[in-house]
Amino acid sequence: MVRFARKVGLIAFRELQAEARTKEAFVAMLVFALLVAVVFSFALNPGREAREEIFPGLLWVTFFFAGLLGLGRSFAGDRGFEPLGGLLLAPVDRAAIFFGKAAANLVLVGIVELAALPVFSAFFDIRLPLSDGRLWASLVLGTLGFILGGTFMAALAANARAAELLLPLLLFPVLVPVVIAAVQTTGGVLARALTEELAFGYRILVVYTVVFLAAPWLLFEYLLES
């Protein structure tokens, strides 16, 4: 188990180290997220009440689409370099490859979210209850579910032609529970809903996360065969 975690860490570290050199995906995701905030403001031009109502949905849609930019690259071999081959040969479990990639994506998307959050808050003039643990639970669980499902689907789509076009098509229907539960719990917290009303939403996020933590153990190796 310690060995497994160490290899997961190694793989994640290498991904992040390489990303830190060029910052390609990071910059693209962050700028995209901010751009979406601006575009939505122009397109919807919401009044005070509408702002509060659409804010959680807007926030999550932005996170999902921005994250998609990074996810698509996880398993895509561009620039004449096949990123997976060396890992497939190495003495690591297939699942460690999945969790390494997922961990790197989680860190990357997490940083983008943290950077975008205050900007969204300012643009839409929404005060975020930062001391409310339920807000963070919603953000963390939603992001975790998204990244786990997204990394899995990215590996799956990488086996097909035009993987980047295919990924959103395959991912979003499967991601529906996260979309609903993340938006509803974040929105509920902002609207000061009772915890009991939101409990089911959190439960959905947990179940989804557990399913996509378990699935790679059973199915991920099939995605990497050739």
């Binding site: 529906v176 529970p177 959905i204």
Partner: peptide, 11 residues
């Protein structure tokens, strides 16, 4: 995924 979708939508 389908049952999870159903639960979330029902909720």
């Amino acid at each position: 995924d389908v049952p999870i979708v159903h639960f979330s939508v029902t909720w």
